[in-house]
Design a protein around this nucleic acid. Structure first.
Lengths: 178, 178
DNA sequence: GCTGACTATGTCATCGCTGACATAGTTGAG
DNA sequence: CTCAACTATGTCAGCGATGACATAGTCAGC
């Protein structure tokens, strides 16, 4: 809302499209969260007659809200539990049939290549705009660049692990090593 | 347990040390999970008298358990909601004072540099072992390499964003651009 | 004229995770 | 001798997230 006012629905959509790659928020969680923000005075709300049984509500960040956002963003993140399922799976693929594991990894590599291309497109589009440092769109460029590099790294890693997988199953052939 | 039998406590410790960088499991969740694994027949349990009011229980993977692990590892991951707090923060640092944001980012860069060094050490140690592809330790090498590359990318990204931050606050100076 | 997609707000049961609490023997350092 | 740290297993309240359910107007395409 600090970037632009919007309804809960519209904010949810924004949270899906560019933000969705590094943060998720379920539909059900948005409306209570919005109510809390109004309670603490970080956003203002204006109700308009809307479709459905409820009013349409446009939320706008207050000055205090923008200050709070800035303070939060400059605070170091609480070191997060990453929980990367793919890495966990790779740490256990010694128990899998190499052919199946390799196929999975190459499919993942393709997924990440597609993701990389999408990010690269966003980066190209934003870079064409001659952005001043420190503007919201410049920030979006930074995150898109990180997304692109992350996807590239992941793609390469998937391919490299797949390429290193044994052609003959070491478990089946009885050559059990540490 | 498929790698080596162990007690719940010992498995939790293993989950902290090399695995903790890409997966977490709280102490409270381990014991119910273990009981479920016994229920479905993927691990066997042997009770021994131990310290404290409960028996010490050594868990061992069954053949069915190893098969299930292999099948799970070769299955593509359910595309995960990544939830990267640092990236989310960077997408909002336009609302922060650049000096504060820059300090935070450089501190994060140092954290990731430390992490990178730790991973690099693990990689070096494992690489010295002449690992056969497809063994459990080879898998550990693959995940450590990914961890190292991820940490390096993150370190560089933090530094690059910090370097690009404006020296004069664009919000305070009134030059509000898209 | 009908159907499906989109806009729009909300509730709620359920589920899994987290962190604290509870208990108790062993071992090593000061 | 004492205290802290480690081994070891378990329970449980609370919290937040998820996904389904509920409702209803508009608009484009067939």
């Amino acid at each position: 809302m600090a970037r632009a006012p919007g309804t809960g629905y519209e904010v949810t959509a924004r949270l899906r499209n560019p933000v969705g790659y590094y943060w998720t928020e379920s539909h059900g969680g948005v409306y209570p969260a919005l109510a809390r923000l109004v309670d603490v005075g970080w956003v203002r709300v204006k109700a308009l007659p809307g479709p459905g049984p409820h009013d349409k509500k446009v939320y706008t960040a207050t000055a205090a809200g923008r200050r709070a956002l800035g303070a939060w963003a400059a605070q170091p993140p609480a070191d997060p539990p990453p929980r990367d399922e793919l890495v966990l799976k790779v740490s256990s693929i010694w128990a899998s049939r190499p052919a199946r594991a390799g196929a999975m990894l190459l499919a993942e590599a393709d997924r990440w290549e597609a993701q990389r291309r999408e990010y690269a497109g966003i980066v190209a589009r934003l870079r064409a705009q001659e952005l001043a440092p420190g503007t919201p769109t410049w920030c979006a460029l930074q995150t898109a660049q990180r997304g692109r590099d992350f996807a590239r790294g992941r793609r390469d890693w998937c391919r490299s692990v797949a390429a290193g997988l044994p052609t003959i199953d070491p478990l089946a052939s009885g050559a059990r090593t540490s």
